[in-house]
Nucleic acid binder design. Structure first.
Length: 229
DNA sequence: AATAAAACCAACCGCCATCAA
DNA sequence: ATTGATGGCGGTTGGTTTTAT
């Protein structure tokens, strides 16, 4: 999964980091901080370029870096942020404590991009065949119906490969599992349920007020109005 | 069991902004 | 005003693992 170690023309090591290198970098930064990335490897006894050290620290060694197991709320927030910010991964990372820009970017490309594209296709199909789409609206209440603009068209295949195996794990702050939600995913409108988002106050607060416009799907469909700060 | 394809993600690369000299 | 050093960002690559055939 990681690049095999090699050396560039300047004798600097590239590729996967060893535990020994990690320990050197961690120990140095914890003691002296990162005052100059370019100079740091020299003083830390590493045959790496400064950029490589910075990236390793930022994305892997830095304390409080969360790894894997994205919660539903985090996924929804990334989708929402991507809609508003585009590919400003570092800006997104600021809104997701413990997540790095690189990790968010990877997660987007490997998990969420396909889902977002699927939603977009569904919305386009709904516009093209509104009568078909309306037949498929599953709504428990009039208010939900009015706010839910996405629905799976009848002719859409249930390509469950679009749901990654990674997300099939238990949600970090919830007893419900993603597999339990797969059916909901395909039978209910894609809608953020604000009333049930009590697991993570921080993310909830972001979901409820930190943005400056409404949340739209890719075709411009407004999903819900969001007061942003 | 073997092989191919897809998924995943750590790490690299190049560009740009900022700042000090 | 210019130039070089540095940090940071986003796009992309490449190798491993997993899944499908």
């Amino acid at each position: 999964m990681v690049r095999a170690p090699s050396f560039d023309k300047n004798g600097l090591k590239k590729g996967a980091w060893s535990e020994e290198e990690d320990e050197k970098l961690r120990a140095y930064i914890q003691r002296y901080g990162h005052w100059n990335w370019r100079q740091l490897p020299k003083f830390a006894g590493l045959s790496r370029c400064g950029k490589s050290c910075r990236l390793r620290w930022k994305n892997y060694l830095q304390p409080n870096v969360k790894r894997g197991n994205y919660s539903k709320q985090e996924e929804e927030l990334i989708l929402k942020l991507h809609d508003g910010l585009g590919t400003k991964w570092s800006a997104m990372a600021e809104k997701l404590p413990g997540r790095t820009d690189n990790e968010i970017k990877n997660y987007w490309h490997s998990h969420l991009k396909k889902r977002a594209e699927l939603y977009r296709k569904m919305n386009l199909a709904s516009e093209k065949f509104p009568e078909t789409a309306s037949e498929n609206v599953v709504s428990d209440s009039p208010s939900q119906q009015s706010s839910a603009s996405y629905q799976l068209p009848a002719n859409a295949s249930r390509d469950e490969s679009l749901i990654s195996s990674d997300t099939d794990c238990s949600l970090s702050n919830s007893s419900e599992t993603f597999s339990e939600n797969v059916e909901d995913f395909w039978t209910k409108p894609f809608l953020v349920d604000h009333t049930s988002c009590s697991q993570d106050d921080f993310l909830s607060s972001l979901m409820e007020g930190e943005f400056t416009s409404s949340y739209y799907f890719y075709d411009g469909t407004e999903v819900f109005n969001q007061r942003m700060q």
